[in-house]
Nucleic acid binder design. Structure first.
Length: 201
DNA sequence: GACCAGATTGTCT
DNA sequence: GACAATCTGGTCA
């Protein structure tokens, strides 16, 4: 597919008001949006096809559920910023901070459909198949070349941005979240039905 | 396909 | 000291 990375630079990123809403709603609405990272190595990105909501109130799986710590402090900051955390001794995961400032909510981006900078993502991942590039929260962070450097980045004006992309996202599946021990009963995971690039059924 | 062990270290109790 | 919003490569079917 032909694609000029300059093209979407002219689009308007999702405004801060988009993120300053109910977190579960934002998680649903982020499906079909385009996540892009502009790095010195080049530009890479893809369409969001899987998300999970984490809410500070009534959600024990949320990093912010037991109050502010050095790690989770950006979750309590202004919405529309990146929360990138390190886990399992080797992986990073990317979230968008949501809801009002001071609340402590975020949406975990779990999978992308690769679209921009595919060659660069293949190189970073050491994998050829498109399905192996962004089909998991730590995979997509690696493919996009992100790390703790992007923690706290402004998604409306920084090197990491999210744009409206697909107009009508239908066939959204709502289910329970993956890889957590508490809060497993909450229906906070969203993915696009039959999309081949999600992490797991 | 399903299931499982191992990797590896920042973070919090 | 225990654990973690994961991934990979192995086994078995």
């Amino acid at each position: 597919m032909m694609f000029n990375p300059e093209d979407f630079q002219k689009l308007s990123p999702l405004p801060r008001e988009f993120y300053n809403r109910n977190t579960v709603q934002v998680a649903r609405d982020l499906l079909g949006c385009l996540l892009v990272h502009n790095s010195p190595e080049g530009t890479a990105g893809g369409v969001i096809v899987e998300t999970e909501a984490y809410t500070q109130h009534g959600d024990p799986a949320c990093h912010a559920s037991r109050g502010m710590t050095p790690r989770n402090r950006v979750m309590f900051g202004s919405p529309g910023h990146a929360y990138v955390y390190f886990t399992y001794g080797m992986h990073y995961c990317f979230n968008a901070v949501t809801n009002a400032e001071g609340v402590g909510d975020a949406v975990l981006i779990r999978a992308l459909q690769p679209l921009i900078g595919v060659e660069l993502m293949q190189k970073r991942r050491g994998r050829e198949r498109l399905k192996d590039l962004c089909s998991g929260p730590a995979k997509l962070v690696q493919a996009l070349g992100m790390s703790k450097e992007q923690n706290g980045a402004d998604l409306t004006s920084g090197p990491v941005r999210i744009f409206p992309w697909w107009d009508d996202v239908n066939n959204v599946v709502v289910t329970t979240r993956i890889g957590i021990r508490e809060g497993t009963e909450l229906p906070y995971r969203f993915y696009i039905k039959d999309n081949p690039y999600i992490s797991k059924k």
